[in-house]
């Protein structure tokens, strides 16, 4: 039955999603610059606010006050729509990610916005939709660098979508459900990373490529094509591309946590399962975001033919091999 409290609870969950969308990218950008600084033996931003903690707020203010330019000969409508196509799928994906178990606060509340019975499919669909953002922005800019960035990005994202899907498939063979909550619950005895270490690495590599992050950031390669598909964007519209990138990174990290690292499963104190669950989920997800920064600091960018070869010649056969290994394991252990 739907009553007033259900609507209040949904509204609170909505506010949490809004806070995540607005604040998480800001915090991640600051953390990235600080961590990159430390890894590269420099200080990082340390001027704005106490120890530089307000740097991203200053950046956001600056971006808001910048002029918004549209190149002539570009397609205005598509140019305006592209940032929306980047960021809205990321927000939609947040709706099915559980950050904790069910808790009892007067009534039973699950720490997720919605437990969709096709959650995995929704996430993959939104991942595919995210390929439209770069294509639209690159094509509508009528700029050569943007055009190359869009071509590269679309080919990269759709290729890695397949290896990502193959890795997820093996998880589904264990969990037997498309619901992300059921997938976490199926890992009470053993995390999926244990039988599927190969699948885990395939998924992690594909997730980094899907979010266009180094060492797979060919669409944005500064040394070759300046900034790729968003080279003609400026001001707040440009900031939306970054918001989408960091939101997608958060979604990818949460997915690794949920699919392979047991989600909220972990050592817990009786009576505090809710808080401990949220803590475990976020700890695992934040570790993955740290890995993103770490990769960016230590790895050089791949060449484009290496990038596509890596997906189709290595990850795809490895994904099929992983599928067979899991099928054999499941048959032996049943």
């Amino acid at each position: 039955m739907v009553d007033g409290w259900d609507i209040v609870i949904l509204a609170i969950k909505g506010l949490v999603v809004l806070a995540l969308l607005a604040l998480a990218p800001m915090i991640f950008v600051l953390a990235e610059r600080k961590i990159l600084g430390r890894i590269q033996a420099r200080v990082g931003p340390n001027r704005v606010g106490p120890r530089g903690y307000l740097q991203t707020f200053a950046d956001a203010m600056k971006l808001g006050a910048k002029e918004d330019l549209i190149p002539p000969g570009g397609d205005k409508l598509i140019f305006w729509l592209a940032p929306l196509f980047m960021a809205v799928p990321a927000a939609t994906s947040l709706s099915v990610l559980p950050i904790g178990p069910e808790v009892e606060i007067g009534r039973t509340i699950g720490l997720w916005v919605t437990d969709l019975n096709v959650g995995v499919l929704l996430i993959l669909a939104m991942g595919s939709l995210a390929a439209y953002g770069p294509v639209m922005s690159g094509w509508s800019s009528n700029s050569k660098y943007a055009h190359f960035g869009a071509l590269r990005s679309s080919a990269q994202v759709i290729s890695y979508e397949i290896s990502l899907g193959l890795a997820v498939l093996a998880v589904l063979m264990y969990a037997g459900s498309f619901s992300l909550v059921d997938i976490v619950n199926s890992q009470k005895q053993m995390w999926h990373i244990v039988p599927q270490i190969l699948g885990f690495f395939i998924f992690a590599a594909s997730a980094v490529a899907e979010t266009n992050r180094p060492p797979f950031d060919l669409p944005e390669a500064e040394t070759e094509i300046v900034a790729g598909y968003h080279v003609e964007y400026s001001g707040m519209r440009w900031a939306m591309f970054f918001l989408a990138e960091y939101a997608n990174m958060f979604v990818a990290s949460m997915l690794v946590t949920i699919l392979y690292l047991g989600g909220w499963n972990g050592w817990t104190i009786p009576g505090l399962e809710g808080i401990m669950g949220v803590m475990w989920t976020l700890l695992k997800a934040f570790f993955f975001i740290f890995v993103y920064f770490w990769l960016r600091a230590v790895l050089p960018r791949l060449r484009y033919d290496q990038l596509m070869g890596f997906c189709w010649k290595i990850l795809l056969p490895a994904g099929v091999l992983n599928l067979f290994l899991v099928a054999i394991l499941r048959t032996i252990w049943s």
Partner: peptide
């Protein structure tokens, strides 16, 4: 409803 709500939040925020 939750999925639609999150899409709407993203759209309105941007």
């Amino acid at each position: 409803v939750g999925v639609a709500l999150c899409s709407l939040i993203g759209l309105v925020f941007i």
